[in-house]
Simulated assay, not measured.
Amino acid sequence: MPRLIIVMAALSVAGSAQAQIGQRANPDLDKDGRVTLAEFRKSQADGMMARFDANKDGKIARGELAFPPGMSAIGERIWERLDANKDATVTRAEMDAAASVRFERGDTNKDGWLSKGEILTLRQNRGRDAG
């Protein structure tokens, strides 16, 4: 699957305009039935870094992402959101900030954690908050 799909999911903040990317890691890292902000940020950022930081320098350079034909406009909007300081790289801090925004959107009842239903809704809507 194209790398853009994972960028979108992580971002929308993570999340974003894409297709399924296969089996997703469970963001409930401690398996207590709740996903905290810390768990959500870790699962989002770790996945992004593992997939896209090809040279393992701790950041994702614009050149490490390839947008497939027909997805470049959406991909560019997502990149713009991720690269908050506009330095052509996305750091772990920028990914964490984007994940925090997405977490807040997903925590619809504002109880400080995401339920399985809230996570499913985030995944279903990830393409809608790409632009």
Rank of each mutant, 00 (worst) to 15 (best):
E76Y: 06
G127S: 08
K56L: 03
N125Q: 10
R24W: 12
I60A: 14
E80V: 11
L4H: 11
R123M: 11
T36N: 10
K59T: 09
L122Q: 11
R3H: 10
G112H: 04
E64R: 05
N125S: 15
T89I: 02
A130G: 08
A17M: 04
G75Y: 02
K116M: 08
G15P: 13
F52D: 12
L122V: 14
G131H: 09
K116A: 15
R77Q: 13
G22K: 02
R128L: 09
R62M: 09
F40W: 03
Q44I: 03
P2I: 01
A84M: 08
A84T: 14
A99G: 04
R62Q: 09
D30M: 07
Q20L: 11
E80P: 03
K42P: 13
Q23W: 09
P69E: 07
D46F: 05
F103E: 00
G106Q: 00
L4W: 03
A66H: 12
E94I: 13
A99M: 03
F52V: 10
P2Y: 09
Q124M: 08
R102L: 07
L82M: 07
D87H: 00
G112Y: 03
K56F: 03
A38K: 12
L11T: 13
D87C: 00
E76Q: 13
E80T: 15
G117K: 07
A84Y: 04
G47H: 04
P27K: 02
Q44L: 14
E76M: 04
R92E: 06
E64M: 07
M71D: 09
R24K: 15
D83I: 10
P68E: 11
G106R: 00
L122C: 15
P69L: 07
R62C: 09
G127Y: 05
A14P: 03
S72C: 02
G15S: 06
M71L: 14
K59G: 13
R126H: 12
D87E: 04
E104P: 00
